[in-house]
Amino acid sequence: MLTPITIVYLVILACVLALVVWNLFTEKKFTNQITAAMVTIPLILRLLLIK
């Protein structure tokens, strides 16, 4: 059951995820792209309420 605070949390999470993905695609340096890619993994799993 999603409580109101969980919904707010997930919205914030979605925003952060969107920014990281935007960063992944605009970043020129490959190592920074890898970092962004790694950061997205836990964010996606949490957004989908898997982990």
Partner: peptide, 21 residues
């Protein structure tokens, strides 16, 4: 070039998410 690498990394991320998920 950086768009190609971003797309490749997206595929990797998707694979990791599917496996770990």
């Amino acid at each position: 070039k950086h768009t190609i690498t971003a797309l490749l990394l997206t595929v990797v991320v998707a694979a990791v998410c599917v496996y770990s998920g």
